[in-house]
Amino acid sequence: MLKEKVFLNQFTFAEQQVFELALDGYSGREIQLVLSKEEATIKSQRQNIIRKLGVFSMKESVKKFQHLEYESPRKLLQSR
């Protein structure tokens, strides 16, 4: 649980909302509808998540979160 909190704390609240919906399998369009936000806003927040994690896609971001058990807390903190 601590690793998950450290991981998510690198995101703004809005980015956390987007990321959590992505974890649940929502598409960009579905996230836009659920959060009642403009397409450009969701796109920007998704790009921020991707940039902060140093990956190339939301799919890769989700995989990174799902494999937290293999990451050391120190490595997570260094990526911030």
Rank of each mutant, 00 (worst) to 15 (best):
R51H: 12
G54L: 07
L2Q: 08
F56T: 15
L2K: 06
K64A: 01
K75T: 11
I50T: 15
S44P: 01
S61Q: 01
Q16L: 08
E39T: 07
K75L: 09
Q78V: 14
E71D: 12
K59P: 02
S27E: 09
R29M: 05
K59H: 09
A22F: 06
Q78C: 15
I49V: 15
R46M: 12
G25D: 09
G25S: 06
T41N: 12
P73D: 06
L76N: 11
L68W: 01
F56W: 13
I42P: 06
Q66F: 05
K43C: 15
K5T: 01
F65A: 00
K59Q: 11
I42W: 12
E15R: 00
A14R: 14
E39A: 07
L35F: 06
N9W: 11
E20V: 14
L68K: 01
L2E: 10
F65I: 00
R51T: 06
V62T: 01
E4V: 06
K63Y: 08
E71Q: 12
F7T: 00
Q16P: 03
L76Y: 08
M58F: 07
E30C: 10
M1F: 08
V55A: 05
S61T: 03
A40G: 09
E15V: 03
K59N: 11
Q78K: 15
E4Q: 13
S36K: 11
A14Y: 13
K43R: 14
K64P: 01
S27T: 14
L33Q: 15
P73I: 04
V18D: 04
E71R: 09
I31N: 03
K75N: 10
E20I: 13
P73K: 11
K59W: 09
K43V: 15
Q66Y: 05
F7Y: 05
E20Q: 15
S44C: 07
K52S: 10
R74H: 09
K37S: 12
E38G: 10
Q10L: 07
F11N: 03
F56D: 15
E30G: 14
E71C: 11
V62P: 00
M1H: 07
V18L: 04
S36R: 10
F65M: 00
D24K: 15
K3N: 09
F7Q: 00
L77G: 04
F7I: 00
T41A: 14
L2S: 11
L77V: 06
N9C: 15
K3Q: 09
S27W: 05
T12G: 04
R80E: 07
A40P: 02
K64H: 02
D24S: 14
F13E: 10
L68Q: 01
I42G: 04
S79L: 03
E38K: 13
K64D: 01
S44Y: 08
E69C: 06
Y26F: 14
E71V: 12
R74K: 14
E4M: 08
G28W: 02
N48W: 02
N48I: 01
F13P: 02
A22I: 04
F19H: 02
K3I: 01
E38W: 09
L2Y: 04
I31C: 05
L68N: 01
L77Y: 06
S57A: 02
K59T: 09
